[in-house]
């Protein structure tokens, strides 16, 4: 054997490569079976970024379908509740360009929740059927109400209401929800350089 290798270096090389190929093939094959991932992980990752309002503003019936659509190549700028931050996160994940939010699908807005004016409600259950997260409580011919903590503010219950008794109200901001703003140097540029000063002030000084 040793002599054979010495006398046929070409054959020896072929054998060595073959052996290596078999070993790596076996390792890869083993890995493919042992570490097999069920489902499509990219869809789950996209879905984790989407805000789960289930509002359908993107044109898909929920966040998961839109995540699937993005995974198969749809644009990432169709989600107004996710807003700019959501687009940035998606662009990071998918390594694509950041694009502006598509106005066609709506504008980014503050968080709101649905509120049913209860004395006007006729108990038609239409909003209950429309709610994607079962956040409306009620029964036929009985008053309905919104469970605020479950409401995602998707707006889908407003349209079907025949008596128009549902309002979208901004989420109450109290002392605990308040936070410091990020300082924005561009809003109040420092008037240190004379030419930066407002013309009115310059005149006053002169």
């Amino acid at each position: 054997m040793f002599e054979l290798i010495l006398t046929n270096p070409f054959l020896a090389a072929v054998l060595a490569l073959l052996a290596l190929g078999l070993v790596f093939g076996a390792v890869l094959g083993f890995g493919a079976i042992t570490f097999k991932v069920e489902g499509d992980p990219i869809v789950d990752q996209i879905n984790a970024i989407l805000p789960q309002t289930q509002c359908g503003q993107c044109g898909y019936p929920g966040c998961k379908p839109y995540a699937e659509a993005i995974a198969s190549g749809d644009l990432i700028n169709k989600c107004p509740p996710g807003g700019e931050a959501g687009i940035h996160a998606l662009a990071d994940l998918l390594d694509v360009e950041v694009i502006a939010l598509d106005d066609e699908h709506g504008m980014e807005d503050i968080r709101k929740v649905a509120f049913i004016r209860e004395d006007e409600c006729i108990g038609c259950t239409k909003c209950i059927q429309a709610c994607p997260v079962d956040a409306i409580l009620g029964a036929a011919k009985l008053m309905h109400t919104v469970i605020v903590s479950e409401c995602t503010g998707c707006d889908l219950c407003v349209e079907p209401c025949p008596v128009d008794c549902i309002d979208m109200l901004p989420v109450a901001t109290g002392k605990n929800a308040w936070s410091w703003d990020l300082p924005n140097p561009t809003v109040n540029p420092s008037p240190i350089i004379a030419s930066d000063r407002e013309p009115g002030r310059k005149d006053a000084a002169a």
């Binding site: 789960q52 289930q54 929920g62 966040c63 997260v133 079962d134 956040a135 479950e150 995602t152």
Partner: peptide, 10 residues
């Protein structure tokens, strides 16, 4: 957390 909750309910 809210999104996770909404997803479960959806």
């Amino acid at each position: 957390q809210q999104a996770e909750h909404a997803k479960l309910r959806f």
